[in-house]
Each structure stands twice: as C-alpha cells, then as structure tokens.
C-alpha cells in the first residue's frame, strides 16, 4: 500500500507515483500499439481505393468505400450468417455438453475418473488435418441415411465440431466447478433436491462465467476453422467466412486484398462484440477455478 506521509513533498510524491503507477500508462500505450497496429492497417487497407497489397503500404492514403460496397457483390453476407449459425450452435452445444460432463467429473466419484478426464484432453490432440478422408467417408455414409448429416450440410459440420466438445472445455469447466463449495449442493440434497435439480438450478447459475468463456472459445474455434469447413461445405452459399475469404486471397488469379481486408474488418466485429459483452465474465471464468484442480 502506498501510504503517503505528510512529510513528503509533492515532488517526491509525484516521482513515487510515477515509479509505482504512472509508468504503467505509457506502457499500456506501447502494448496497445503492438496489439492494434495490424488492425489499424487492416482498416486502412479496407478503405484503400485499389484492393492490392502493394497499394496499401501507406496508411489511409485514400479513403473509399469501394471494398465494402463490393462485399455486396459476393456471397459474403451469407457466409457471415452461416458462420454465426454454425458458431452459435456449436458454442451452445459445447457449453451444455461440457458443463454436464464437468459436473459429472466434479461431483460424482467413479472409477477411472481422472484417467477419463485426461483421456478426453489427449484425444483432442489427434491431428485432424489428415482425418478429413475419414470425416468425408463418415458423412457420405450418414448422408445416405439422412441428408441432414451428409456432405454440404451445416448440421453435419456442427456435429463434427461437437465431437470435440468435451476435452479442453470439460477441463476448463471442471476446475471451475470444483471451486463451487460442495456444501452448497449437499445442503440442497438434504432438502430433497435431485442431482438434476442441483445441476440446473444451483450449479449452472453459479458457473455462468466459465460457461461464457467456453462458449466464446468454441465460437472463436469455429470462426477460425478452415480444413473441416472446407471439406464438408461444398457449395458456395453454405461456406463459412474462413473458407470463403481464403478463396479471395488464395486464388492464383485474383487480387482481392482490399476485399479481404474489408471482409476481415466486418467479420471481426461479431467476435469483438461478444468479447465486450462477455468481458465481465471472461477474466473470472478463465482460470478462477483451476487453482484447485
């Protein structure tokens, strides 16, 4: 605690303030510069008149809404909608399944509890890049039974993502669940509450921060996934942002840097909004519980 004594002069107080607190503001400015400069560049590139990389090296050399207008000539908005639907559903499913699993691991004692928790985490480490052959064949067989789960179905893609819903999510939540004192549910149990009632009515409201965090992480994961989405969603109007926007800059014969930048600015908005909306939970949710594994 900084306790200033009456004997100190204002000058020493200032230098003390500077040494203890003040320097943190310029540092914050520096970090902000590091964090934001690429983003400033994207905004500048998205506003550039001509959509080429070499033409955007000078920041805000020209301001034009061209690139944003051109987004309307592409399937960009349907990609946004797809991404939001797929991301939202996956986040919702991942939160529910993860929370249920974490509850089981946290509150019940059963054989192989630790081992299964670790196995869940380790299974997630399987490199998916080559598994696309298997994913593809699986969805073809499922698609013959019900097209809803076949290739080019967003439902199928959501299911594939949900296949990875346990694992790291469960682990993150597990720690948090453990931090909720057992006495709370024990007293409810004495009052005659069932395990389901304890889960839904007592635990879930208490763990909201970690639910928000897991939901956000799942959403960001879907947002950034490229390989699975590219393999499963074959038709253009079903694409996600990652698949569609990659095409703008990867295609050998197209120079769409400006379009990409404009798309990137628009696409990062939902994530940013989510971040800001959930911010009060995020800091508390990420590790608060894992102190007690």
């Amino acid at each position: 605690m900084a306790i200033s004594r009456a004997t100190k002069t204002p000058a020493t107080r200032l230098s003390r303030w500077w040494a203890e607190v003040g320097w943190k503001y310029p540092l914050a400015l520096l970090v902000f510069f590091y964090a934001a400069s690429p983003l400033v560049y994207v905004v500048s590139a998205s506003l550039a008149q001509r959509g080429t990389l070499a033409g955007t090296a000078r920041l805000f050399a020209s301001i034009s809404p061209n690139n944003y207008e051109n987004l309307n000539n592409t399937a960009f908005w349907s990609w946004v909608v797809n991404t939001l639907i797929i991301g939202g559903s996956t986040a919702f499913g991942a939160v529910l399944m993860g929370a249920a699993a974490a509850y089981a691991f946290s509150r019940f004692r059963f054989r192989g509890r630790r081992t299964s928790l670790t196995s869940l985490l380790i299974i997630q480490m399987f490199p998916q890049t080559v598994a696309f052959v298997a994913v593809f064949l699986l969805l073809i067989s499922l698609g013959r039974v019900t097209p809803l789960l076949g290739i080019n179905s967003t439902v199928a893609l959501i299911c594939v993502y949900l296949g990875g819903a346990l694992g790291a999510n469960t682990f993150l939540m597990f720690g948090f669940f453990n931090s909720i004192p057992k006495e709370i549910d024990e007293s409810a149990k004495i009052d005659g509450a069932t395990h389901a009632q304890i889960f839904w009515k007592i635990i879930m409201p208490l763990v909201t921060p970690v639910l928000a965090v897991v939901g956000l992480l799942a959403f960001i994961g879907v947002f950034g996934d490229f390989i699975l989405a590219r393999i499963i969603l074959t038709s253009e109007h079903n694409w996600t942002l990652a698949v569609g926007m990659y095409q703008w800059v990867s295609a050998e014969l197209s120079a769409n840097w400006g379009l990409f930048a404009a798309g990137a600015v628009v696409a990062s908005l939902p994530v940013l909004v989510l971040f800001l909306a959930l911010q009060k939970y995020i800091v508390g949710g990420l590790t608060a519980g894992s102190v007690k594994g």
Partner: peptide, 20 residues
C-alpha cells in the same frame, strides 16, 4: 451427464481416428 458428449465424441472423433 457424460453420455451426450461421449456419443458425439465416439462418432465424430473416435471413428475418424480409427479410420485414419
């Protein structure tokens, strides 16, 4: 509590691992 997640895990993760 584990089953919903485990079913998805088995179909979409373990199967693809086994097939690989």
């Amino acid at each position: 509590y584990l089953t919903p997640g485990l079913i998805f895990l088995a179909i979409f993760q373990l199967f693809t691992m086994a097939y690989t």
